Amino acid sequence: MTEYKLVVVGAGGVGKSALTIQLIQNHFVDEYDPTIEDSYRKQVVIDGETCLLDILDTAGQEEYSAMRDQYMRTGEGFLCVFAINNTKSFEDIHHYREQIKRVKDSEDVPMVLVGNKCDLPSRTVDTKQAQDLARSYGIPFIETSAKTRQGVDDAFYTLVREIRKHKEKMSKDGKKKKKKSKTKCVIM
């Protein structure tokens, strides 16, 4: 069974824990209790493949930012979460993405942009803004509501699919490099 290491990042209060708990335990946590770091595991079937999701729910508070490099190193894919009623959390996505790329030393890291709290009427981040940002990053965008469960499975499952595509691409690139290195030079 394939294991996928997913990391949920975003500013404090955007609903990272609520999304994760909704996926794992099928219930909505409405009281806000700032996370330092929590880890969850769940076995699911995605596109006919049974897999184990190892999900790291991270601290959004700035005082825990020193811990970010460590979990970013171990993560295979990242859910970059903002709240649709919090423009600052949307603007912060850029910083999370840049930090992930720096730590992973790669421009090509599996990510999904997630606009959470889409059940709320007080939207300050337009869907088109988020779609445009995701398009500019070359990553999928999904709106979710941890409260109603809308888009929750889709967000995590899409990230797994992005990781699969990335692994497939990397193995193809690896095979191309191996083929090239088999060419021999004969000096007579």
Rank of each mutant, 00 (worst) to 15 (best):
Y64G: 13
L52T: 05
Q129D: 15
G77R: 01
K5T: 13
V125T: 10
R68T: 15
D33A: 07
A18H: 01
G13P: 15
Y71N: 09
L52E: 02
A155K: 04
T58K: 01
V45Q: 14
V29P: 04
V109F: 11
L159T: 07
S106E: 13
E168R: 11
Q43I: 01
L23V: 04
P34L: 03
D47Q: 05
D119P: 01
Y71P: 12
V114Y: 01
K176F: 07
Y32P: 00
M170I: 04
L23N: 15
K101L: 09
T158C: 05
T58L: 01
K128E: 11
L79G: 01
T58I: 05
K167R: 10
D153N: 06
Q61K: 01
E37H: 02
K128Q: 11
A66Y: 04
L6I: 13
A11W: 08
Y71V: 15
V112E: 01
I139G: 05
Q61T: 11
A134E: 15
K42G: 05
L19M: 12
L6T: 04
G77N: 03
V103A: 04
G10V: 04
D54T: 01
K172M: 12
K184E: 13
Y137D: 13
T127G: 10
D30Q: 04
I46L: 11
T127F: 07
C80H: 10
Y157G: 07
D119L: 03
K16Q: 12
L53Q: 08
D119H: 12
A155Q: 04
G12E: 05
R123S: 13
H95P: 05
L120C: 13
M72R: 01
I84S: 14
T2M: 11
A134F: 06
D108R: 08
V152E: 05
L56Y: 02
I142K: 03
Q61A: 13
K16E: 04
E76Y: 14
C118V: 12
Q99V: 11
Q22F: 02
G48N: 11
A11N: 08
A66V: 15
E31S: 02
I163V: 07
Y157T: 11
I84W: 13
I21V: 10
G12S: 07
T2R: 08
I163F: 07
T2Y: 11
Y137I: 11
G75W: 06
M188I: 07
R164W: 05
V45G: 06
P121M: 12
Y40K: 01
Q150W: 08
G77P: 04
P110H: 10
E91V: 02
I187S: 11
Q22M: 05
Y71G: 14
Y40I: 01
S136C: 13
Q25E: 07
E162D: 06
Q43N: 03
D154E: 11
A83K: 06
E62L: 15
L113H: 07
Y71F: 10
A59W: 05
V152D: 05
L113V: 14
V45P: 02
M67Y: 03
R164N: 08
T20A: 10
T50E: 01
G60R: 02
P34D: 00
D108P: 01
P34G: 00
A11E: 15
G15D: 04
A130I: 12
R41P: 10
G60Y: 05
D154L: 09
T58M: 08
Y32G: 00
F141Y: 14
Y137P: 15
C185H: 15
Y64S: 15
I100N: 04
I100H: 08
V14I: 10
L6Q: 02
K167P: 05
I21N: 08
D38C: 01
G10C: 01
K184S: 14
E98I: 00
F156C: 12
I139M: 07
G15V: 07
Q70G: 01
I36V: 00
G15T: 03
G151W: 04
D132M: 08
H27G: 06
S17T: 12
K172S: 14
A66H: 06
D54Q: 01
E49I: 04
P34Q: 00
E107C: 13
R97W: 15
E37W: 00
S65F: 04
S17W: 00
V81S: 11
S65A: 06
T50V: 14
L79I: 11
A11V: 06
K16R: 01
D173R: 08
T183W: 13
G10P: 02
L133W: 07
Q70D: 01
E3F: 04
E143A: 02
E62D: 12
R73H: 07
R41V: 05
Q22W: 02
E76I: 08
I46K: 04
K179R: 10
L159G: 05
V112M: 11
L120M: 10
T87A: 12
I93V: 07
D132K: 10
D92V: 04
E98S: 10
S17E: 02
D38L: 00
I55N: 05
T35H: 00
V186S: 14
V14R: 11
H95R: 13
A18K: 06
Q70N: 01
K101R: 11
F78N: 03
S65G: 10
A11F: 11
L133N: 14
V125M: 10
E162A: 09
E98G: 05
D69N: 04
Y40A: 02
R68I: 15
V8I: 09
D54P: 00
S136D: 14
I142V: 06
K165C: 02
D126C: 10
D33F: 14
K175Y: 14
D108F: 10
V114L: 11
I55A: 06
A134V: 13
V112C: 06
D38P: 01
T124R: 10
E98F: 03
E31T: 07
V112Y: 05
R123I: 09
I84H: 14
Q131R: 13
Y64F: 15
I21H: 12
T58S: 03
L53T: 05
I139Y: 15
V44I: 08
K117Y: 15
Q25F: 09
M188W: 06
K16C: 02
T74A: 15
I142H: 13
T158F: 13
E49F: 06
K175V: 08
V160D: 03
L53Y: 13
V125G: 10
T58D: 00
T50K: 02
A155V: 08
G115L: 11
V9R: 01
I36H: 00
K104P: 03
M111A: 02
S122A: 10
R41D: 02
F28H: 01
Y64I: 14
R73Y: 10
Q70R: 00
V7Q: 01
G15K: 03
A155P: 07
F141N: 05
D108A: 12
V7Y: 14
T20G: 13
M72F: 15
L159H: 13
C118H: 12
N86T: 02
Q99L: 12
M188G: 15
K5D: 14
E107A: 10
T87S: 10
G13Y: 06
A66P: 07
Y4L: 13
V186R: 01
T124F: 09
F90A: 15
V7N: 08
L23G: 12
C80E: 01
T127S: 10
K177L: 11
A66E: 04
K182C: 04
R135V: 12
S181P: 14
A155M: 06
K117M: 15
I46V: 05
A59Q: 14
V112D: 03
C185Y: 06
H95D: 12
C51R: 03
A83D: 15
V109K: 01
T35K: 00
R135I: 14
K182Q: 14
E37D: 06
V29Y: 04
L159E: 14
I21R: 12
E49H: 11
K167A: 10
K182R: 09
K178C: 06
